[in-house]
Amino acid sequence: MDEYAELLAPIRQFLQCETPDAWVQKACLPENLPIILKDHLLCELKAAQSAMFLIRKYAVDKESAATLLEWFKPYESFAYDRIGDVHTLRNKNQISKQILARKQSPYSQDLIDKMVLLIKEELHHFYQVLEIMHERHIPYDGITAGRYAKRLFSHISPHDPKTLVDKLIIGAYIEARSCERFAKLAPFLDEQLSNFYISLLRSEARHYQDYLHLAQLISKQDISERVHYFGTIEAELISSPDEDFKFHSGVPTH
C-alpha cells in the first residue's frame, strides 16, 4: 500500500477519525464477507442514485432527466425487485444521449459532467461487485440500510442552495470513508478482493474531491465550517458502538 500513501494522505487528513481496528477485524472474517459485499453493492448504487437525483433536481433539462431514469432502471429493478442477474446487467452501463443543462440553470455543465462520470463509475463498480458475488456463489437477497447515511442526511439544511451544498459535502465524506476502508481492508483479504479494492482507491479519492469542489463552487460562503460540522458527525458515527454491522458501520458491539 506504500505506493498509495500519497493518494490516501489527504483523505486521512480530511476524515476526523480512522476506521477502528475492531471494525477491520470483524470485516475480515470470512463469514462476514457476504454482508460486506452485499452492502458494498448497494452503496455503489446509492452513490450513483445520489448523483443522479442531484442533477435531475437542480441541473438537467427535461429530456435528460428522463434519460437518467431510464439508465438506472435495470440496476434498480435488480436491487429492489430481484429482476435480472449478472448476465442481464452486462453492458447496461451505456447512456444513449448527452445529458444537458436546462436553460438558465444556475448550475453549470461542469456539475453535470462530473456527476455523469461519477454515475458511470459507480454503476461499473456495482457490476464488478455483482460479478465477484456471482463467482463466489453469494446470492443477493437484499440487505437493510445501516445508520450511517441516514444520520448524516438528517442534519441537512432545509433551504437551497444550502441543501445542495450539504448533500455534496456528505457525498464527499461517504466517498472518502469508502476509500479509507478499502485501503484498510485490502491487506487482509484474498488476492482477488484485495486487488479489486485497491483498484477502487483512485476513483473514490477523486470523487470526494469533486464533491467538495462542486460544493464550494455552488456556495456563496466558504464551506470550511460546514465541512468540519459534518466531519464531526461522521467521525462520531464511525467511532461509536454500532449493533448493525455494515460497510460504513461504527465499532461492532459483539
Rank of each mutant, 00 (worst) to 15 (best):
D222A: 11
R12W: 04
S77Y: 09
F247T: 09
S194D: 07
T232E: 08
C28Y: 03
K162D: 14
Q209T: 07
C43A: 09
P252A: 13
A186T: 00
L8C: 11
A65F: 08
I55C: 10
P34C: 06
L214R: 09
L111I: 09
A48S: 05
L42D: 10
H87R: 10
L89I: 04
F245Q: 01
D85Q: 10
R181N: 04
H207E: 08
V116Y: 03
C43Q: 07
G231T: 02
Y197R: 06
R151D: 11
L185E: 04
A235G: 14
Q209P: 12
I95D: 13
N32F: 05
H228Q: 14
H87S: 06
I132E: 01
K150T: 11
A9R: 10
R90P: 01
F72C: 06
E236W: 11
G146T: 00
P139N: 15
H87K: 15
E191L: 07
H134D: 14
R202H: 15
I95C: 08
R202Q: 13
Q192E: 09
S239R: 04
V60L: 04
L89V: 05
F247L: 06
L69G: 10
A235H: 05
D21N: 09
Q221N: 12
Y80S: 02
K26R: 15
P30C: 02
A215T: 04
P10A: 15
E70Y: 06
A66V: 07
T163E: 15
S178F: 06
K114A: 08
L41Y: 07
K26S: 14
H40I: 00
S224W: 02
K73N: 09
L189E: 02
A186Y: 01
H228M: 05
T253M: 03
F245P: 01
H137V: 14
C179R: 08
V116Q: 01
E180N: 14
